[in-house]
Every structure is written in C-alpha cells, then in structure tokens.
Amino acid sequence: MTGVITAQQSETLQRILDEFKGTQGPLIQVLHQAQDVLGYLPAEVQSAVADGLALPLSTVSGVVTFYNFFRTEPRGEHVISICTGTACHVKGADRMIDILRDVLGVGLEETTQDRRFTVQGVRCIGACGLAPVMMIDDEVYGKLDRKRIQEILALYE
C-alpha cells in the first residue's frame, strides 16, 4: 500500500484485521478501530479491509457510506459536533450553527482552512438536559450561547 497511509499505519491495520480473525460479521467493528487509528477511511484503507476480510470492496464501501459515523475525508485537528437532536433543536441548535459559522467561517461538514476544526452536525448525543449542546472531540459542552461558544473555542486556540 502506498499513498495516504504510512507503513506504520498499514501495520496497525493488519494487527486489527488479525485481532478479528474468527469473529463472525466483524466488518463494522474493524472499520471502527481502523478509523480510530487512521482518522478516516480513504479508498485504499477500504481496499485493505476488503482484502483482509475476504469481502468484495463494494460491500466495504457500501457499509462505510451507509453509516454516518464513518468518513472518507480527513478531519481537522478538533472535531466540533453540534447536536441537532430535538431538545437542542427546540432550544436553538440552528442558531448555534450560525454562531459557529460566524466565529470559524465554516458551516456543517466543513473544515477550517488551517485544518484546526471540522464542524459536523450529529444526532442526539444524549445530554438533552443541557441543550443546546456541542462536543469538541470527546468533551461535551452544554447550555451554549454566543458568549459561551467563544469562551470554549478560546480553550482550543
């Protein structure tokens, strides 16, 4: 394999594939781990997974594109996941997206030019009690408004 992923990453991918040998129906679990390590699932990773699991590439690609969680494009250093669940919607999630666009200059499913932030919309993250909510990487921030969003983003500067 050449190109997007390094030799070391390719080795890790092989280790993941080995780990799931003998497991029934492992495709989604393998893709999860591969994305954890590589950040995203470009075509060549999908090919490697298909070879490793003896599946047609179309099956792998079909699964990758079916599920929201898998991505085929690289992400920014930090991923801002703005919750678009119902509780957040009724408490102004759309407004929060506008504010992020204002502050960062990018909208949903976009990455800032300096590759520091990717903004994405996610389905409910289950912190409805604190709506509106966003996650930056794995950290949850609730009760958002313009001021709080600015304060939070400053933490990542």
Partner: peptide, 25 residues
C-alpha cells in the same frame, strides 16, 4: 459488545441484526 455506527434505522430489530452481522443496517 457490538458498536453501532450512526444509523437511526438500526433501532429497528431486523436492521439491528443486519448491523450486528457487519452489514448495512
């Protein structure tokens, strides 16, 4: 433990079963 991958339809039991099997839900 099988981890889902973000598809609402997988809450439906037959779709969930397909997803456990590693397929499109």
């Amino acid at each position: 433990v099988r981890i889902g991958a973000g598809a609402f339809v997988c809450g439906e039991e037959t779709a969930l079963i397909a997803s456990i099997e590693g397929e499109r839900g």
